[in-house]
């Protein structure tokens, strides 16, 4: 076979693979939208579920999801950004940085069911918090920490060294340089990481169901159990409680995830464009 023909065939195969990946994505979105759109009404969103989810909507699940995502990112963001600042600004490569990176890399690879088991023994049983949003959020904190560390580190590293030098030369301390110059420049990148973390909290099931529980009522405090959207979806889908409602819930989940991805993508592009001037 002629090498030009070979190239043509090869490139077409590669392109076909990429296209099928997109086709899968489109199939997932369109299929869920097609099956779920019919039941996705305003009342579905703003009504609480009744009769185990057979009737009513998903409002309490949205509230629980919001609590869980907000709480876990509120705890994980200072930890993650602090870690990134420490790695980028306070040390050179050393044994400590190696340990920190090892911890973060390993944590990123731990499967969610292990987080679930861990959160269950530590928070639910050992610390006697019981199944509650706080237990779930603390567990999710550990899960999203590596993402926030990694994106914050990249964002902080991308701030030019010259700016730091200029700040130091004007009599700024390290911390003043970080808070007044470095962090403001890194904010879009950091937000990207936080939003990705929120995305994980929204879509996570295994780690949340064993820590936050699956109570259907709207939680009144973070010390009460709550059923997030993903958990609610899992329960009504698996137990065959209501297929239409399951699809509509899945659609809501997918819309959230799509929004999150679009926002982070736009932020990243803006961030990269900002860095070029």
């Amino acid at each position: 076979m002629n090498s030009r023909t070979e190239e043509k065939i090869a490139v077409n195969i590669l392109r076909l693979a990429a296209l099928s990946a997109i086709a899968v994505l489109l199939f997932v979105i369109i299929y869920v939208a097609y099956k779920g759109a019919g039941s996705l009404t305003m009342t579905f969103i703003f009504e609480n579920p009744r009769d185990m989810g057979r009737e009513g909507g998903i409002f309490s699940a949205i509230v629980s999801t919001f609590y869980l995502a907000a709480l876990s990112s509120m705890i994980a963001t200072p930890l993650g950004v602090g870690t990134a600042i420490y790695l980028c600004e306070y040390t050179t490569e050393s044994a400590v940085t190696k340990i920190v990176r090892f911890g973060s890399d390993c944590l990123a690879g731990v499967p969610s069911i292990i987080f679930g088991l861990f959160g269950f023994v530590l928070f639910v049983i050992y610390l006697k918090l019981g199944w509650c949003l706080l237990s779930g959020a603390l567990t999710m904190t550990f899960m999203i920490l590596p993402t926030i560390i990694r994106t914050s580190e990249e964002a902080i590293k991308s701030v030019s060294y010259e700016l730091r030098e200029a700040s130091y030369s004007l009599g700024a301390t390290r911390w003043q340089t970080i808070t007044k110059i470095v962090l403001p420049q890194a904010v879009p990148g950091i937000i990207t990481g936080v939003i990705l973390g929120v995305g994980r909290s929204i879509s996570e099931t295994a780690a949340v169901i064993f820590t936050a529980g699956s109570a259907l009522a709207t939680p009144e405090s973070i010390l009460e159990s709550g059923r997030t959207l993903a958990v609610h979806f899992y329960i009504i889908a698996r137990e065959g409680i209501s297929m239409e409602r399951a699809f509509a819930t899945a659609l809501v989940l997918i819309i959230f995830i799509l929004l999150i991805n679009i926002i982070t993508y736009a932020l990243m592009n803006k961030f990269i464009a900002g860095k070029k001037t």
Partner: peptide, 24 residues
């Protein structure tokens, strides 16, 4: 005080660039 070869502008307003040192 030090002036560098490449004029390094802090990502702030003109006013805040000048006020940066005194504020610190």
């Amino acid at each position: 005080g030090m002036v560098f070869a490449r004029p390094v502008i802090l990502p702030l307003s003109i006013y805040e660039n000048i006020a940066y040192g005194p504020r610190l």
